Simulated scan of single mutants.
Amino acid sequence: MLIGVIAIQGDVSEHVDALIRALEERGQSADIVTIKHKGIVPGCDALILPGGESTTLGRLLIREGIADEIRQLHLSGKPIMGTCAGLILLAKEGDEQVKKTHQHLLGIMDTTVNRNAFGRQRESFETELELPFLNSPYTAVFIRAPGIVGCGKDVTVLAKMDGKVIAAEQGNILALAFHPELTFDTRVHQYFLNKLF
Rank of each mutant, 00 (worst) to 15 (best):
L129M: 05
S124E: 04
I148G: 10
R144Y: 10
V155A: 08
D154T: 14
A140Y: 08
L158T: 07
Q121C: 06
L129C: 02
K160Q: 15
R120N: 06
S136K: 14
T127K: 12
A159C: 13
F133G: 12
F133H: 13
E123D: 10
I143D: 03
N135S: 15
I143S: 11
E130Q: 14
V149H: 02
S136V: 03
L131P: 07
V149N: 07
D162T: 03
E126V: 00
A145K: 00
P137D: 09
L158R: 06
Q121V: 04
Q121I: 04
L158G: 01
P146R: 03
Q121D: 11
G152I: 10
T156M: 09
L134H: 04
C151N: 10
L129S: 01
I148E: 08
T139S: 10
A140W: 10
E126I: 00
F125N: 07
F142E: 00
R122K: 08
S136Y: 12
N135A: 12
A145D: 00
V155G: 05
T139W: 00
G152H: 13
Q121E: 13
Y138K: 01
A145M: 12
P146H: 10
G152N: 11
R122L: 14
T127L: 11
C151P: 07
A145T: 02
V149S: 08
E126H: 01
E123P: 01
P146M: 10
E123V: 01
F125G: 00
P132E: 13
P132N: 12
E128M: 01
K153T: 07
G147M: 03
G152V: 12
G150Y: 06
L158W: 09
G152Y: 05
S136R: 13
I143P: 11
K160S: 13
K160V: 13
I148R: 00
I148D: 08
T156S: 14
P137I: 05
S124R: 04
M161D: 09
P146D: 09
E123W: 02
T127H: 09
D162H: 13
P137Y: 04
L129T: 01
R120Q: 13
L134A: 05
L158E: 12
L158V: 06
V141L: 12
E130N: 12
E128N: 02
F125L: 05
K160Y: 00
N135D: 15
D162I: 02
Q121K: 07
A145S: 15
N135R: 11
S124I: 08
G150Q: 14
A159D: 01
G152M: 06
R122G: 01
A159L: 07
D162W: 04
K160A: 05
F133Y: 13
N135E: 14
V149K: 12
V157H: 09
V141E: 02
S136E: 14
L158D: 09
F133T: 07
I148N: 01
R144V: 06
N135Q: 10
S124K: 08
F125Q: 05
N135I: 02
D162M: 11
R120K: 10
P146A: 08
E126T: 12
L158F: 09
C151R: 14
V157P: 11
Y138T: 00
A159V: 03
P137W: 03
E128D: 13
V141K: 04
P137F: 11
K160M: 13
K160R: 15
D162Y: 06
T139P: 02
F125E: 01
G147R: 04
G152E: 09
T139M: 10
G150P: 06
E126D: 12
E123C: 03
P132L: 11
D162E: 15
